[in-house]
């Protein structure tokens, strides 16, 4: 089984995000960068499938030089090799352009299965993985919490509102990992040592035959005009006292008469 995992490096979810002086980007200096949490589930699932069936797990990621740390983390978890698309011209690409670049890279990587996180927690677009599937002409199954492969068929349990749907498709397939799929392993010390020797190819857009004029911030279809802090809330009203019944009564009164939601 040839498995490719799409991985993105993102700011840690405990990070404080601050808007940069240009008003359309964020300050990146003091951020801690990690593997997108949903991609950890994707890597873990790929490793489990390979452990059961044999094959290769390839990590594919696009981003600046520091992205290599995240690819190495996946290699340290046990993935076999990495492909890093590192090209200044690709920086700031929107999800459609990103998906086109990843799809171009996937022309040179054999795959039966592509796994990605169900969303990246920076852009929150939920978009790159389905677009990659579209550009490759393969089916997508999003928000998967369980999968079983038998022969050339994959059966996925997909989260839907109020329950799950069980979806089946013939490989090749792209599915996206939702929380609940598995518990990702930590990289072991021997894993980290081994990762340093694993193959990691670096590609530019030219290597992939992608026109730089379709990528990067300047060529976004979805243009960020402004970033703003979330709307500020009014100052909190503390319900005083230490008698729970009196506090509860006061709270319900406020919710009823002042906030008018009960």
């Amino acid at each position: 089984m040839e498995i490719v995992v799409l991985v993105k490096q993102v700011p840690d979810t405990e990070s404080l995000i601050q808007i940069a002086g240009d008003g359309v980007s964020i300050k990146t200096e003091d951020l801690k960068w990690v593997m997108n949490p949903y991609d950890e589930f994707a890597v873990e699932e790929a490793l489990r499938i390979r452990e059961a069936q044999g094959g290769t797990v390839t990590i594919l990621s696009m981003g600046p030089a520091k992205t290599v740390e995240t690819i190495r983390t996946a290699l340290a978890m046990g993935a076999d090799k990495g492909v890093h698309i590192n090209d200044p011209a690709a920086e700031g690409s929107d999800p459609l352009a990103t998906a086109k670049i990843l799809a171009a890279a996937l022309k040179d990587i054999p795959f039966d299965l592509i796994i990605a996180g169900m969303r990246a927690v920076d852009g929150d677009n939920y978009q790159v993985a389905p677009a990659v599937a579209e550009f490759l002409g393969i089916p997508q199954i999003t928000q998967v919490i369980k999968e079983e492969i038998s022969g050339d068929t994959i059966r996925c349990h997909q989260v839907v509102e109020g329950g799950t749907a069980v979806i089946e498709a013939k490989l090749p397939v792209l599915f996206t990992a939702q929380r609940g799929l598995n518990e990702p392993r930590y990289a072991s010390l021997p894993g980290i040592m081994k990762a340093k020797k694993k193959p990691l190819d670096v590609k530019t857009l030219a290597d992939l035959g992608v026109d730089a004029g379709t990528a990067g911030t300047a060529n976004r279809k979805v243009k960020i005009k402004a970033l703003n802090p979330p709307p500020a809330r009014k100052a909190i009203t503390m319900i005083q006292g230490d008698d729970p019944v009196a506090q509860a009564s006061e709270l319900v009164k406020k919710l009823h008469e002042e906030a008018k939601i009960l």
Partner: peptide, 20 residues
């Protein structure tokens, strides 16, 4: 059209336009 959408899990809110 100007679309307002949260990013970074709602830690910032973006105003975006769409070309085409």
């Amino acid at each position: 059209f100007v679309f307002t959408r949260p990013m970074y899990g709602g830690k910032v809110v973006a105003d975006v336009t769409i070309d085409g």
